[in-house]
Amino acid sequence: MEATGKNGCSRSGAGGQALHWLREAACGLAIGVVSANAHSQPAYPPDALRNATSTQAAATALGAARPELSGYLLIDAPDVALPGKIRVYAESQLPGTSQIVLLKTSLKAVGAAQSPPEKVLVAAAQIAPGEKAQLQAEFDAATTTNLVLMAQFRGQWFYATRQVKIGSAAD
């Protein structure tokens, strides 16, 4: 018989009190560690970045007042795609990159109805020392989209751009 404790951990009701206690203790310890880390470190990505509706607002949320164009940032995405999900691979080849952020902005068709601004964040990650700075993400696109990859290296922000044109299927 399976039951769930008040902390969300599952436990077995069939025999083994020692095992039951050990399982509960381990689950409680793991929850404590998560809680301690959650309170000691700010959430990532920050809310201002998650809610940004322009690349400028996203850069401001990151503290990237004047990012520099870099050839060491790569965005692998199709040049042309059909409307729907688009897969993107992004990478910083700057050794020691500490953060990597992928943003998108959709180009609106001339005469298109005004719609509320959409959020620009596609993906973001903090990179541990020695890890490869890369992201894989998917996003929905109905119109041509500009992608912006931003990476922080030694306290300075760098960026690269790529456009994905959205076409329509031929009859």
Results as ranks from 00 to 15, higher is better:
6 K>H: 09
11 R>K: 08
11 R>Q: 09
11 R>T: 10
12 S>K: 05
12 S>E: 07
12 S>H: 02
13 G>M: 13
14 A>E: 15
17 Q>N: 10
18 A>V: 10
20 H>E: 11
21 W>H: 09
21 W>S: 11
23 R>E: 06
24 E>D: 08
26 A>E: 12
29 L>N: 08
31 I>M: 08
33 V>E: 07
33 V>N: 01
35 S>D: 14
35 S>H: 12
36 A>E: 10
37 N>Y: 10
38 A>F: 08
38 A>D: 15
40 S>I: 05
42 P>F: 02
43 A>C: 04
43 A>R: 13
43 A>S: 11
45 P>W: 01
50 R>S: 02
50 R>W: 02
54 S>H: 06
55 T>A: 08
56 Q>A: 13
57 A>H: 01
57 A>T: 04
60 T>L: 11
63 G>K: 06
65 A>W: 06
65 A>L: 13
65 A>C: 00
69 L>H: 14
70 S>E: 07
70 S>T: 04
72 Y>P: 00
72 Y>R: 15
72 Y>W: 11
72 Y>K: 14
73 L>Q: 04
74 L>K: 12
74 L>C: 00
78 P>C: 03
78 P>N: 02
79 D>E: 14
80 V>T: 11
83 P>L: 04
86 I>K: 02
86 I>S: 02
87 R>T: 12
88 V>M: 05
89 Y>F: 13
92 S>P: 04
94 L>W: 10
95 P>F: 01
95 P>Q: 09
100 I>R: 02
105 T>V: 14
106 S>M: 09
108 K>T: 14
108 K>H: 12
109 A>K: 15
111 G>V: 06
112 A>D: 15
113 A>D: 15
113 A>H: 11
114 Q>D: 14
115 S>W: 05
117 P>E: 03
118 E>S: 14
119 K>P: 02
120 V>T: 03
123 A>K: 13
123 A>C: 01
123 A>S: 13
125 A>Q: 15
126 Q>Y: 04
127 I>F: 01
128 A>K: 15
128 A>M: 12
130 G>H: 08
133 A>Y: 02
139 F>G: 02
140 D>C: 00
143 T>N: 15
143 T>E: 15
145 T>D: 04
146 N>M: 12
149 L>E: 02
150 M>C: 05
151 A>M: 05
151 A>N: 01
154 R>D: 13
156 Q>T: 10
157 W>M: 04
160 A>C: 07
160 A>M: 06
161 T>H: 09
162 R>F: 05
164 V>T: 04
164 V>E: 01
165 K>D: 13
166 I>T: 00
167 G>R: 10
169 A>K: 12
169 A>D: 07
170 A>K: 10
